[in-house]
Amino acid sequence: MAGQPDFLVTVPTRGDGRDPLRRDRGGWQPGGHRPLPPFVTDLRAGASGPFDHLAQIGRAAELAAIGGALVPFDPAGEESLVVAAGLLRQSRHLRVVAGFHPGIATPVYAAKVSASLQRFTGNRLGWQLDVELDPAVARSQGDFLQGADRYARAEEFLSVAKGVWHEEGYTYEGRFYQVLAGGFQSPNSGLPFPRVHLTGSSPEALALSARHADVHLFTPDQDIETAIGELAALSAREGRRVEYGLRLPVLARDDDDEAWAEARRLWELTGDGGLPDPDPRTRLWPGFHRIAGSGPSGLVGSYATVAAGIRGYLDRGVTTFVLESRPHLEETYRLGERLLPLFAKEIEHVH
């Protein structure tokens, strides 16, 4: 039986733009800004700052009744926790998930920052812990752990963060972290811990999620059904229930022809040869890495076609959908106004 969908949008941390080759929105590519048209008479510098475009995306999600936003960890982009804090401050209802890796700080400090954000924003912060980084990226972040040690550290990170959050006088001694008589006091105690989102399909990733995740996020290229079955069994042994999510690139328009015409237009701008065909079995199109800078495979088609694809994942147990679509501002309005209403009955049960 299908579950009830929860939708989030992805917020860009490395600029945005109307075509794949430009990311000048949000203060990126300053040398590549388009000149202002001659009818623009207000030429004041600083009228719009780097955060303003991100704030517009968050506001668009809230106005379009999209439940939340994911600010992914991006070593070459803006700091996700800072962006998340800004979005939470600028909104009243939007839930914001901040992506980061366990090497960012001690778990006590990460928990303390998050406790303040929870208190200031009505408990709307979530975490996405990125455990498996490309080795070169990890080293550039000062993180030289490899293999199973990454998951061992993530296990300790989450255990300590939850420990100081929930228990005054908390003490812990592990391989990576030690705490002596820690723990938060009022008013930073007693708050809901951020909902934890984890990723991956390895045995280590699924075992970590079984013990700590509230939501496990997959990608369309993974064997989702097999992984869900394994994770369900593991989490049941832990006496827990984990929800299943999907990071899903989408390009939706009024009809299929219009959607594919837009995909073709964006693809041609990249100068990358002929447009690839969707997978005949899954209908997933493998070209999003070129036109949107997101995961490689996603759904292209009319709003009804994309909704049908999402319902197929709902039928397999996925209930959280982190939608990725560029340009983020315009597409957030499109998705909220045209796609989500097709799930109105299901969403009413959630809210």
Rank of each mutant, 00 (worst) to 15 (best):
V11H: 00
V11C: 02
T13I: 02
G17L: 06
L21K: 09
D24G: 02
W28K: 03
W28M: 02
R34Y: 00
L36D: 04
T41E: 11
R44L: 07
A45Q: 11
A61Y: 04
A65N: 14
F73E: 05
P75W: 01
G77S: 07
V82P: 01
V83D: 01
G86S: 09
L87H: 02
Q90M: 15
S91G: 11
L94T: 05
F100S: 00
I104V: 13
P107E: 11
Y109A: 15
K112H: 14
S116I: 13
R119V: 02
F120L: 15
T121L: 13
R124G: 01
L129C: 03
S140T: 10
F144C: 01
F144V: 02
G147W: 09
A148G: 09
R150P: 06
Y151F: 15
A152L: 15
F157T: 00
S159M: 05
V160H: 06
V164K: 09
E167I: 12
Y170G: 12
E173G: 07
G174N: 07
R175Q: 10
R175C: 03
V179S: 10
P187H: 05
G190V: 05
L191D: 03
F193K: 13
V196K: 14
V196L: 13
S209F: 06
H212V: 10
T219G: 13
G229D: 12
A232N: 05
A236V: 00
R241I: 05
E243N: 15
Y244D: 05
A259Q: 10
A259P: 11
E262R: 15
R265N: 10
T270P: 04
T270C: 06
G271P: 08
D272F: 04
G273L: 07
P276M: 10
P276L: 08
P278Q: 14
H289Q: 14
R290H: 13
G293W: 00
S302R: 06
A304P: 01
V306E: 07
A308K: 14
L314M: 07
D315A: 09
V322H: 05
Y333T: 06
E346Y: 07
H351M: 12
